[in-house]
Every structure is written in C-alpha cells, then in structure tokens.
Design a protein around this nucleic acid. Structure first.
Lengths: 218, 218
DNA sequence: TTGCATCTAGGTAGTTCTACTTAGAAAAAT
DNA sequence: ATTTTTCTAAGTAGAACTACCTAGATGCAA
C-alpha cells in the first residue's frame, strides 16, 4: 500500500465526467488510473484482466449497471473493491449496493470533495459512505429500534406477565415455563391470554411472534 | 430557516478550538453563534435559556460530558438538535450518541471541512455522520445480516419449500398459504415437515420461529 | 427407460396455543 | 378497611403445528 500505487479503474458512460474524475484521482500521487470504461460489458472485462485495487462504478450505465457489475464481480470473488457513484440520493440503491458488497457509496454531487477520501478509506479496507447518505443508515437503525421501543401497552404488563413473556421469547412452551416457575400450565396460559388482550394480539401463535420480534425490548 | 439565521451554540473546554470553530461557523452567513460554554453545567444552563437551534457538543468536557448533556436535553424534550464532536473514532461512542438522539456526529479531524455540512443537514432535519464513521454503521448492518445469511442447509430447500417458507415468515397459517397457492393445506403441511427435516428443526412451532428469525435471508 | 427427487395429498395422533368462561387467594392501592 | 388488581387455576372448545405414515403424478437425469 505504501510502496506501490493504488490501481484505480473508472467506469462511467459520460466521457466528460470520466476525465473530471481522472483529474481528481491523478492529483493524488498515491493513486494510479489503470483503465476506463464507458459501458458495463467492457467494465467487467477490464476488471477481470487488469484486476485493479479499486473500481469506481457509475450506477447509470448502458448495458449492465454499476450494481449488476458489482454483483458479477462478487460472484467471481475478485479482490477488486467497489465504489458506487450515483446521481440520486436514493436509499434503496444504497442499500442494494451495500448488500452486493460495495465498499463505498458516493453521491456525484459530492464526488469532487469526497472521492479521494472514499478511495483512501476503501483501499484501507474500510467502508465509505457519502456523508449525506449516512443519515439513511441512522434512520434505518432507529426505525428498527423504534419498533421495539415504543410498542404501546408494553409497559402496562404486570411483573408476572413480563416474566412469562421473556420466557416465551426464549422459545419455551407454556408447559416448560410452568415447570420453571413452579406454577400450573393453566396459569401460564391465563397469563398468555391476558398479555394477548393487553397487547390486542390475536390469531395463531401471536404471542410467540410478538415475543420473538420484541425480545430486545424485554 | 431561510429568513432567520440558524442559532448555534458551541461547547468545548478548549478555548482555542472554540475560536477556530467559531470562525468556521461564522464564515457561513446563514449561521449565528448565540453562545459558548467550556463545561457541561454551563452548557446545560445556556441551552435551556437561549434555546439554540443547534448545539455542538464536545465529548470530552469537565463535569458533564457531551453525551450526558445530550441525554439531559432529550429528557427535557428541548427542540435543540445535537451535534457531537469527538477526537477518537470510536464505534461505541458513536452508537451511544445516536441512541441518545444526537443528530450529528463529527470527528474533530474532519471538523473544519464537515462541520458546515453537518450543521446544514441537521438544521434541515437530517442526520449527519462523519464519513469515516459511517463505515461502522455499515459493518453493524452487515454483521446482523451475516448471522442470517450463512444458515446451513437453507440453500438445499426446493423452490416450493422456499416459497412456503417466505409465506410462513409473513405470519400466514398453512391454510392461508394453501389458499394463496391453490394447493391443499395438507400439501403445505407436508412441505413444512420436509423443511423442518432439512433444517433439522424440531419442537413446537419451530418453523415459525425459524422463519421469523431468518426472514431477511429469504 | 429406469430411477430419483419433487410436488402433491391424505390418515392418524399428539402437542401447543388461542378463546372464551369462572373463581379463590394474595397483594396493592384507595 | 375496603376495593381493585394481580396471581393463581381450571373447564371446554377449537385452531394450528408437529410427527409419523402412505402414495399418485410429474419431471429431470443417468
């Protein structure tokens, strides 16, 4: 990393954008552009031949788009790390890019300032997200926690009910719970019924479902 | 937001850093510094009196630290939005900050370039994370999905079994699934049994449990 | 073509949970 | 001290899942 230059390949269908990007990348003496492509097929071919350290892929490409390229490369287990470039600040695209294994995700509007930081981070094995996109991850994180945090009625459960709900979340049956608490299975079932009522749950095995989804909040 | 200036309060125990930050912030004409504090107690007092739009809090402070201040403010349901500044690139600190409700998280090493972007994003109701920190969120995201992705045996399920497992994860009963696929409930049950066998699941409602825990991998 | 896996479907039995009911004893709150 | 809530428990009914079994139809591969 410190001796040899980091080999970078640029994929974008717009020549003007490519040359702009090239200029920025070449302004960093630790980086070296080893190839360019204007469409998906060529990109896949070049990446397999040249094996660059980092490939910067536009999302909108003729033929294969950036995400599809990334998927192909991941399937072939190439060492080339992917940075996705995109115009639109789109949560879904970002999620899919990360799922596919992209290490970087940079908005074009921020590309000039951020691309060097992104390349450095990704070359070092880290991830890089355009800062304006990182809010999405926070929101996703919070969304998941909100669901468990603000469940209505969860706090007007009694102690015994709460104790039993915890054990349900541990995948125990009413009988097992009864044995563990030295009470009758029927009592456990009575508590279950009360919990269902308080949480306005109904249907088959609703409590098990609820307990599994909310076990972190118990 | 467009007429009045955004009121910003700065909290840091180091006067030199404060003045540097002040310069950067004041270079943006849409922002206005309405106060400064060098320790936690004063910070809490000033925020409650002045009610700034945004408070930039250092983590390392004499008395209350930035995170504790944020918690206090959150408890009092003030409208002031919090941006946390920190020296160290620490995942735990970042997580705690977000839990507490901080809207921004900026590393001091990136503060000069990022603080204005951060203020703008937060003032607009978005989140902002220092780009070098956003990798943590990605990693956390992936960690959670890895657990579900590599379940053994999940890939030697047949198409029909997979289809049914998906519907089970949607909390549907065998009867509902049967109706949806125009097959007999008994067929669905047969598939369930086969799936249980392949995944070596046993016990009460094991499939429902499995499906709920692994729904993202289906 | 034979054979294997898959999809389909039913039989029977047993377990577990839901949904209603009632009811006494203990604990908590008024 | 009285009322209310909570915890305990049981009856009955039905829905839903598991765990075994067999078996015809289909399609794919050796």
């Amino acid at each position: 990393m410190s001796t040899a230059k980091v080999k970078v390949l640029i994929v974008d269908d717009h020549p003007l954008f490519r040359s702009g990007l090239r200029q920025v990348v070449e302004s960093d003496s630790t980086l070296e552009i080893v190839g360019e492509a204007g469409d998906g097929e060529l990109a896949v071919k070049l990446i397999q031949e040249i094996k660059p350290d980092i490939a910067i892929l536009d999302v909108n490409l003729p033929g294969l788009n950036g995400l599809e390229i990334a998927r192909k490369l991941q399937d072939k287990r190439l060492a080339t790390r992917i940075i996705i470039l995109t115009m639109h600040k789109d949560e879904e695209t970002c999620n899919r890019a990360l799922d596919i294994g992209a290490k970087g995700f940079v908005l074009k509007e921020n590309a000039v300032e951020e691309i060097l930081k992104a390349i450095a981070a990704v070359a070092a094995g880290e991830h890089y997200l355009s800062s304006s996109i990182s809010g999405y991850l926070v929101r996703r994180r919070n969304r998941a926690e909100m669901l468990t945090a603000q469940k209505p009625g969860l706090d007007d459960l009694t102690k015994a009910e709460r104790r039993i709900l915890k054990l349900i979340a541990e995948k125990k049956t009413s009988r097992e719970i009864a044995a563990e608490l030295f009470i009758s299975p029927r009592t456990v079932e009575a508590h279950r019924a009360n919990i269902c009522a308080k949480l306005s749950l109904s249907g088959s095995h609703s409590l098990l479902q609820f307990a599994l989804e909310n076990r972190s909040a118990l």
